[in-house]
Simulated scan of single mutants.
Amino acid sequence: MKRFMLAATCAAALALASSALAQEKIRLTGSGASFPAPIYMAWFKDLGKKNPNLTVDYQAKGSGAGVQDFLNKTVDFAASDSAMKKEDMAKVPEGVQLLPMTAGEIVLAYNLPGNPKGIRLPREVYSSIFLGKITRWNDARITAANPGVSLPDLPITVVVRADSSGTTAVFTKHLAAINDEFRKSLGEGNTVNWPASDKFIKSPKNDGVTATVRQTPGAIGYIEYAFAKLAKVDYALLQNKAGQYVGAGNGGETLAAVKLPPDMIAWLPDPDGAKAYPITSYTWMIFRKSNADPKKAQALRDMVEYGLTHGQKMADAMGYIPLPAGVVDQVRTAAANIK
């Protein structure tokens, strides 16, 4: 009888310990931007290995949808390439903390017969393509910038985002900065009214635009550099503010010249510098400052700290820009506001 009681006591103690251990396991949910999704997915997978009690589930559904999920309180955090509007922040009684967690470049991926590499696109040309003003690949303004390259007499199919997209916001902010007609007629934002033309095709998320460009001869579309790198698609050399043609992969110098204000939101619509890549942007995670569960708040801070340390080491290889050291310090300090 004593043996039975001892065994029962041990079993109960074991079950209690197991239950306590299970209670320590925390699951975080997030949604939003597809721009940083590849690196975030890599982070969260590795974080789960390093801390088996912490699971982070992230759904890449577009910046606009992520912000809406955050406002609806269906996620613990959101991610957006277009930060968050002040009027949306005002709807969150717990307070909002934005943290730039990584940065990247938007490239113009294209699909041309013969796969010519590094097609040069002047500022006037690529902004006019997305206005629907330049419609063929052998347009004189494109051929003049690419001497010795045989460009086909082929219609340009422009691939744009179908969803509410921070990538679109960053891209159109740049186009509006360099082309007055674009600013006046289309403007900037997560969605814009692209020209009504059968040569404009809409696809969801960065991977959708990437796939459509790959499948469509004569196509050009804007995607995050990491997607172009992963899919091995050709992308253009873009003319920057200094008049130089540059390719993606050189955004570190551009970011280092930007100082983040207290709200942690800074834009680079048309950066200076001979080597500056013209379409470079931070991308943000969005948190509530006040969280009902202190353990979940600690887990969110742990997730941020992982991204600032181990996570930054993955950035370059995956086609993202490691945060400058000063920015890492600023983000770490601001992350203490998540309570």
Score class of each variant (00 low, 15 high):
G48H: 00
A336V: 15
K339F: 08
S80A: 02
R27F: 09
G104T: 06
T29S: 13
A317E: 13
M285G: 14
V96Q: 04
D180M: 03
T9R: 12
V149Y: 09
A248M: 08
E94N: 07
D316S: 15
Y110T: 09
K117M: 13
S290P: 09
M84E: 02
M1P: 14
Y222W: 15
A162T: 10
G104N: 08
R141W: 01
A257F: 04
V192W: 12
A228E: 05
T172H: 08
Y40L: 15
L108T: 08
G252E: 01
A211F: 10
F287A: 01
G311Q: 13
F77L: 11
D153C: 06
A90L: 10
P116M: 10
M303H: 05
V233K: 13
V75Y: 05
P278N: 01
A20Y: 08
P100L: 05
R332T: 09
G148F: 02
L14Y: 09
G249W: 00
T167F: 06
L21F: 13
A83G: 07
N240Y: 04
A65D: 13
L186G: 00
H174E: 03
V213N: 08
M101L: 14
S127Y: 04
V304C: 01
F35G: 03
D302E: 11
S82G: 10
S290M: 11
S82E: 00
K229V: 07
M1S: 15
M84D: 06
T309I: 10
I134P: 09
I265H: 00
L121E: 10
M264W: 04
I265L: 00
K49E: 11
W43M: 01
V67F: 07
S197L: 05
K50P: 02
V209I: 10
D293K: 02
R123C: 14
F70L: 00
N193Y: 13
A22Y: 06
V75L: 03
W194Q: 02
V125Y: 07
T254V: 06
